[in-house]
Design a binder for these strands. Structure first.
Lengths: 221, 221
DNA sequence: AGTATCTAATACTTCTCAGTATCTCATACT
DNA sequence: AGTATGAGATACTGAGAAGTATTAGATACT
C-alpha cells in the first residue's frame, strides 16, 4: 500500500522538520563559533541562537566536536570557489593578480571571525591528529582547486607557472593566510596590495616602478 | 645603619626567592601552555609543573592572562633572533636561503606546540583588541629585526631587495607562518625546500632546473 | 629576642559547561 | 481512533577551573 503524505504549507513531515532543525542548528553554530571561538562557544548559546534547546543538538549531533565538523564541512565547500570562480583571463595578469589579492584580503578582513575560527581549528587539529585527518581531504581539495585554476589560466595570461601547480597553490594559499594574520596583528602595517605584489614577483613580473622605491616615502605606510 | 644580609649558598633573600619562584612559574607556564593550549591549560597544572601551588601564581601574577603575557614577552625575545643571527653572507644567496628556509621550517616543526600556541594567541588577539595592542610592539620589533638583517645582508649577497625591507620582512614572515600551517595540516604535501624556493623566486633567482619540471614525477609526494 | 611582613600553601566558593536521563507531545503507522 | 515512535524540551549531574579568603611559616626589621 502506498502512503500519501498530505502536505499543508507549514505542515512538515518529520524528516523535513528534522532536517530543518539540523540546518538551523548548523547556521546558529557557525555564527556562534565564529563570534566566540571554538572553546568559548557553548552549546546552550548555540541552541538559543537557533531558538531551540540543547536537546535538539544532542538529538542531531553526537557531540560538540561532531557539530563543529558538520559546520566546517558545509562552510568549506564555498570558500575557495568564490575567489577562483572570478578569474577572468581577458584581463592582464597584473590586473587579475591585484583583483584576486585584494578580494582575498578583503574577504578575510570582513569575515574576520571566520579567520579566527580557522586559526583555532588549525591549532586544535595540531593537538588532535584524528581531527586533522578528518579535514585533510577537504584541505587537499581546496588546494587542488586553486592549482587547477592557475594551471588552466596560465596559458591564457601568457605566463608560465614558476613552480608545479600544486606547489604554487600551496605557496599562494600560505602567503594569503600568512598575510591575513599579519594584517590582523597590525592592520596598518600591511599594505593592501602586498599580496598581489608578492605574487607577481614570483611570476617574475617586476613592479610598476622600474627602479627601486625608497623604503619610506609618500607610499601608504 | 647599613644592614648586611648574610648569604649562605642556598639561603636566598626574599626578593631572590620570589624572583626564582616567578621564573619557575613562567617556565612551567610556557611548557603547559604549549602542551595544552591557551584555554585548556589550567593554573593548577602549571603550578604543579612548577612544584608549587596556585597560591604562588596569584602571588606573582594578577590573572591567567597576565601570566600569558609575561610568558610571551620573554619567549618573544629569542625566537626571531635565533634565525637571523645565523645569516652568513660568505655563502651564496641560494645556500643561505635554503639554510634559513630549512631552519625555519624545521624549528616550527620540532617546536610544533609553540606554533599551535601562537595560532591560538593570534585568534585570541583578534577577539580581544586590548590584548593585541599589548603585543603589537613586540611584533613590529620582530619584523624590524628581519627587515634590518635583510637590508644589511643584501649587498653582501650581491642582490637587491625587490621590495622595501619592511614589506619584504612581512612577506617573508607571512610565508613562513603560512607554510608552517600548510605543513601542519598536511605534512607530506609540503616539500621541505618550498619556502626557500619561493623566496628565491621573489628575488628573481629562477630555480636550478633551467626548464620546467613536470607536476608529478619521482619527487617525494 | 620579639614582632611585623610578605610569600606561598590550603581550602573553599562560585560558575560554566558538556553530556545525560527523563519526559512530553506531535507525527506516523495500523 | 488508537498506539508506537522519536524529535526535542526540561531538568539534572559531575567535572573542572578561575579566582578568593585565610593561614602558616619563613624572613626582615628593631
Amino acid at each position: 500500500m502506498i502512503t500519501q503524505t498530505v502536505r499543508v504549507a507549514d505542515r512538515l513531515t518529520r524528516e523535513e522538520k528534522k532536517a530543518q532543525t539540523r540546518a538551523r542548528l548548523m547556521e546558529a553554530a557557525a555564527a556562534v563559533f565564529a563570534r566566540r571561538g571554538l572553546a568559548a562557544a557553548s552549546l546552550d548559546e548555540i541552541a538559543e541562537e537557533a531558538g531551540l534547546t540543547k536537546g535538539a543538538i544532542y538529538s542531531n549531533f553526537a557531540s560538540k566536536e561532531d557539530l563543529v565538523l558538520a559546520v566546517l564541512d558545509e562552510a568549506g565547500r564555498e570558500r575557495i570557489h568564490d575567489i577562483t570562480a572570478d578569474v577572468d583571463a581577458s584581463r592582464t595578469v597584473d590586473e587579475e593578480a591585484r583583483r584576486a589579492g585584494a578580494q582575498f584580503m578583503a574577504s578575510t578582513q570582513e569575515e574576520l571571525p571566520l579567520l579566527l575560527l580557522a586559526l583555532e581549528l588549525t591549532a586544535y587539529s595540531g593537538r588532535n591528529p584524528e581531527f586533522r585527518d578528518r579535514q585533510i581531504d577537504r584541505h587537499r581539495e581546496s588546494l587542488r582547486e586553486i592549482a587547477d585554476v592557475m594551471e588552466a589560466s596560465a596559458p591564457d595570461f601568457g605566463i608560465e607557472l614558476p613552480l608545479p601547480p600544486r606547489q604554487m597553490a600551496i605557496v599562494l594559499n600560505a602567503l594569503g593566510i600568512g598575510l591575513s594574520i599579519e594584517k590582523l596583528l597590525d592592520p596598518e602595517g600591511v599594505p593592501d596590495d602586498l599580496f598581489a605584489t608578492a605574487i607577481m614577483l614570483m611570476y617574475g613580473i617586476r613592479g610598476r616602478e622600474p627602479d627601486r622605491q625608497p623604503s619610506s616615502g609618500t607610499a601608504p605606510s
